[in-house]
Design a protein around this nucleic acid. Structure first.
Lengths: 132, 132
DNA sequence: GTACGGCTTAAACTTGACTTTAAGTCAAGA
DNA sequence: TCTTGACTTAAAGTCAAGTTTAAGCCGTAC
């Protein structure tokens, strides 16, 4: 398959495939007359890559998944370790979102006429919480 | 107050204050001998700005909060409108996080020995869901 | 009178995940 | 032979929210 065919079947851009190869996330493709040629197993590799992206992993983390462990560590163990860390990250992120939502609910009830007043209230609130 | 004093009391860097001024998020400061001079009301303005950031607003959105409405729209109404949109965004984000967590929980239970196998399973799963 | 700290500016750099561009190669079809 | 169209590369561009850097000015303490 040419890079264009892989891109179409894989649902991404050819430029992304080139980028992944250069970044070490995909093996260097065989060239024929200068052009990359793939067999269908590249689609499996891409599926894992996409799945990892859908899980919220960065490309650096996905590089770990593929190359960051000793060669004899099975993929399942790599997934397990990285997933545990990422779940903790996502929990932290969810907590931050909860805080934002709480602040937004309060903002929705704001009665201030202008930024002066609003700022004064915010600063007072901060002072009060500091005193506790 | 000099920019350094404002930065210290406001808990941010002087470079950020200059950046906010250039971006139109803070009014142009009066200069004395070329240097910016502030009175304490800048701290109230900064408090609103920081609060908006804590709510998850981008600087573009915060610009809307300060300048994006007709001049006679009170700050409370601006907060209200922008907060409603942002809450919807955060809900969408939270849903995406839930999906990621679900995928990660499954990944944690992965038994595959290598990427080939894992990719094959993912592609099979996708095909199945497509058939439904 | 000079050293020092804090200030000024514009412009470049940072991160992440790519895309876009420019200039060029290659094989196939008319 | 000429023209497509898909491919090649390296390098630069994109977005956000600032930070960092370089070069220079200003007032004050010694």
């Amino acid at each position: 398959m040419t890079i264009g065919q892989v891109a179409k079947e894989g649902g991404l851009r050819a430029s992304a495939i080139r980028f992944y190869e250069k970044s070490g996330l995909l093996p260097k493709a065989v060239r024929s007359g200068g052009q990359r040629r793939y067999d269908r197993s590249i689609l499996e590799r891409l599926a894992v890559l996409e799945r990892a992206k859908d899980c919220g992993f960065t490309l650096d983390e996905i590089r770990m998944l593929f190359h960051g462990f000793r060669g004899d560590v099975p993929l399942s163990k790599r997934w397990h370790d990285l997933a545990a860390k990422k779940i903790a990250e996502l929990d932290a992120l969810a907590a931050r979102i909860a805080v934002m939502k709480e602040l937004l609910e309060r903002a929705r009830k704001c009665q201030c006429l202008d930024a002066q007043e609003c700022g004064r209230r915010i600063l007072e609130g901060a002072k009060k919480r500091e005193g506790r």
